[in-house]
Design a protein around this nucleic acid. Structure first.
Length: 502
RNA sequence: GAGCCGUUAGCUCAGAAGGUAGAGCACCUGCCUUUUAAGCAGGGGGUCGGUGGUUCGAUCCCACCACGGCUCACCA
């Protein structure tokens, strides 16, 4: 919307007019005495006398609505904490009344006056004086229907936040959730740390990295796909309980469940195993539910999810066996498994063998059934190159994933702490990489060296924070819980239409 | 990356056999000193996402492109 838009032209004209009268449309500080929330107590209960005793108050915020009535004018002013009505009268404001009626929805003003209650009972500031704090030059979306266009909501999140009531609540909830995670872990003696986001060897997850370049060091670096290998180095260094909440970057497609940068909690606890983390995870999510909503029962997209522990525990192969209608085990013949799958109408990639086959089948057959919180445990070892083996069955990893609302929320395992076996596992990954799997893990010599110094038995877990927020805030797309989701750049034409000029 | 759907006024949406478009809100003018989706009367505003093609004529049909959404694929 360039300047030839009538609505913008009108506002620019008002801007000029203000300046000609010696008024700065973009004012400076305003001595606010009250946030709107401070009036909350008074809103319904205060008597006329109590309101009078309060004397003069000063509020500041954005005009959200204007109702002109000739010689009076009502406005709604919104600050960070709420909305309050303003009432301006020609006989009170004298010459300034004309200025008040020139205000536009979207403008920031500061207003000073006394509180009173209107005929309809609404708490209102009778404006004695006001100041221009910032002129708004673009019209806001409609007061009734708000902003619905998804693209605009994501690209211009500031407008979305302004106009759509629930959006701010989602991101407030995200912030509260992260805070509650910290409370929970801090209370259990975990230390929050930060590890490199730019890594010379991207490790800790099977994923394709983003590449960037450091000029002074003259080297390529990768945006991390996981902090895992660095956090374990810290456990080697004696930090027995560490966690990090930060961004991971994976060079993959986007979907309602996936975003190229996403926030992940990873934590490591020495002298524990995956089983301990199941209990910790139950306790953590329960704590979150209590902090955020006060109840372990949630509704996600019309479906109820009950986080009350204990949660269902399902072994990977038991889940698969049930889905396939015949028992399968890690050493099953791939051909016969593929036949079983086909009998169920599932066409699997004939290239897929071993871990890949299991993974494909599990994702197709079992994951979509996991609505209630479920720990899936005993993963095929091939899928878990950083995880310790099960003693009873060396083809299984001591690992679990948490599913709820048919989505993977967490991934945890007892960490492999034998440096020689870790080197072997990396070698296997290297062969896969040579076979063209560009998501296979890279060999990280320094990580092996760290393990050679000795890492205590440790359990580690990663939890996708954005997905957790989706669950708690009942949002269908990960883009709805990321303030500025990744989008293609606006085209030249669209850019011109959105006024990047000025 | 593939398939399907979408893009009309600042916003939310209608619309037509193919004959250059409409509503509500917002905006402008007038009236209005307790309104609140204020009201009443009048008015302005559109390269119908872009580029080509078919046609006497395209916003509508066709092709290509851009952007977005959903599903699939990959991952968490």
């Amino acid at each position: 919307m360039s300047d030839d838009n009538e609505l913008i032209r009108r506002r620019l004209a008002k801007l000029r007019a203000l300046r000609e009268r010696g008024i700065d449309p973009f004012g400076s500080r305003y001595p606010v005495t009250h946030w709107v929330r401070d009036f909350e107590r008074l809103r319904d209960r205060a008597t006329e006398e109590e309101l009078r005793n309060l004397g003069t108050v000063s509020v500041a915020g954005r005009i959200m609505a204007l109702r002109h009535h000739g010689k009076t004018c009502f406005a709604h002013l919104r600050d960070y904490t709420g909305q309050i009505q303003l009432y301006a009268r020609a006989d009170q404001l004298a010459d300034d009344y004309a200025l008040f009626t020139e205000l536009d929805v979207g403008d920031f003003i500061g207003a000073t006056g006394e509180l009173f209650r209107t005929r309809t009972g609404e708490l209102t500031v009778a404006v004695k004086s006001f100041a221009f704090l910032a002129k708004s030059l673009r019209p806001l979306p409609e007061k009734w229907h708000g902003l619905k266009d998804v693209e605009t909501r994501y690209r211009q999140r500031y407008v979305d936040l302004l106009v759509n009531q629930g959006v701010r609540e989602v991101f407030t909830l995200k912030s509260r959730l992260i805070k509650a995670v910290r409370e929970f872990l801090d209370a259990r003696g975990f230390l929050e740390v930060e590890t490199p986001m730019m890594q010379p060897i991207p490790g800790g997850a099977a994923a394709r990295p983003f590449v960037t370049h450091h000029n002074a060091l003259g080297t390529d670096l990768y945006l991390r796909v996981a902090p895992e290998l660095y956090l374990k180095r810290l456990v080697v260094g004696g930090l027995d309980r560490v966690y990090e909440i930060n961004r991971n970057f994976r060079n993959e497609g986007v979907s309602t469940q996936h975003h190229p940068e996403f926030t992940m909690l990873e934590f490591y606890q020495a002298y524990a195993d995956a089983g301990d983390l199941m209990e910790l995870t139950e306790a953590l999510l329960l704590h979150l539910a209590q902090s955020l909503t006060g109840s372990p029962r949630l509704t996600y997209q019309g479906e109820s999810v009950d986080l009350s522990p204990p949660w269902r525990r399902l072994s990977f192969f038991q889940g698969l066996s049930e889905a396939l209608g015949a028992p399968v085990a890690p050493d099953a013949d791939p051909g016969s498994v593929q036949r079983l799958a086909r009998a169920k109408g599932i066409e699997v990639d004939s290239e897929a063998i071993g871990g890949q086959l299991w993974k494909e089948l599990f994702e197709t057959l079992v994951e979509p059934t996991l609505a209630e919180p479920t720990f899936v445990f005993d993963f095929p070892l091939e899928l878990s190159p950083l995880s310790k083996r099960r003693r009873e069955n060396p083809r299984l990893a001591d690992r679990f994933e948490l599913f709820a609302a048919r989505t993977e929320l967490a991934n945890a395992y007892t960490e492999l702490n034998d440096p020689h076996e870790q080197r072997e596992r990396f070698r296997e990954q290297a062969t896969q990489r040579e076979r063209g799997d560009d998501e296979a893990h890279w060999l990280d010599e320094d990580f092996i060296r760290a393990l050679e110094y000795g890492m205590p038995p440790t359990a580690g877990e990663g939890i996708g924070i954005d997905r957790l927020v989706m669950l708690f805030a009942d949002q269908p797309s990960i883009r709805d819980v990321i303030l500025f989701p990744a989008l293609r750049p606006e085209s030249q034409a669209a850019g011109a239409g959105n006024g990047e000029e000025r």
